[in-house]
């Protein structure tokens, strides 16, 4: 595997850079189609946004680390923060689109999007921080 590691300040202005670097890393492998790279870009954006917000919540100056490992058939991205962590099983899902409460749901779409877009989404979280591991295969039908 080829590894690329990026560290960014935990500020929104650096989010686009994280997306660009991860998408560029995946583009090194020619079998990644445009849609798979779009899936990866969005999933990484969601994970990195959560990491930035986790540091903002505790006024941490620590950097967010984004580690990409590229293989022939997949890219694995790990987003690491030093926030206070959260319980990923305790995140409520948005109501159905036709539910009257749906319009009150302006947050909470990030995790469902990550889980939909990545072939594998693993979240390890503790009081010392959160690690989100995303795996995107070159083909969405590949065995995850």
């Amino acid at each position: 595997m080829s590894e690329v590691v990026l560290e960014i300040p935990a500020r929104p202005a650096y989010l686009a850079l994280a997306r660009q670097v991860v998408a560029a890393a995946a583009s090194v492998e020619p079998s990644f189609g445009d849609q798979r790279i779009d899936d990866l870009r969005l999933a990484v954006s969601e994970a990195t946004t959560n990491a930035i917000e986790a540091h903002t919540d505790i006024s941490s100056d620590d950097r967010i680390k984004i580690r990409c490992n590229l293989a022939d058939d997949r890219i694995e991205v790990e987003v690491l923060d030093h926030g206070i962590g959260f319980d990923p099983t305790d995140v409520a899902n948005a109501p159905d689109a036709e539910h009257p409460e749906r319009l009150n749901w302006e947050h909470g779409l990030g995790l469902p999007l990550m889980r939909h877009l990545a072939d594998v989404t693993e979240i390890r979280s503790s009081a010392g921080g959160t690690a989100v591991r995303l795996v995107v295969y070159t083909s969405p039908t590949a065995d995850a």
């Binding site: 319009l103 009150n104 749901w105 302006e106 947050h107």
Partner: peptide
């Protein structure tokens, strides 16, 4: 050329506000 859940949230919030 790109929107994520934060952007979606603002669109939904905008809809709610004008309605």
């Amino acid at each position: 050329d790109f929107i994520d859940s934060t952007g979606l949230g603002v669109v939904v919030g905008s809809l709610k506000r004008v309605r």
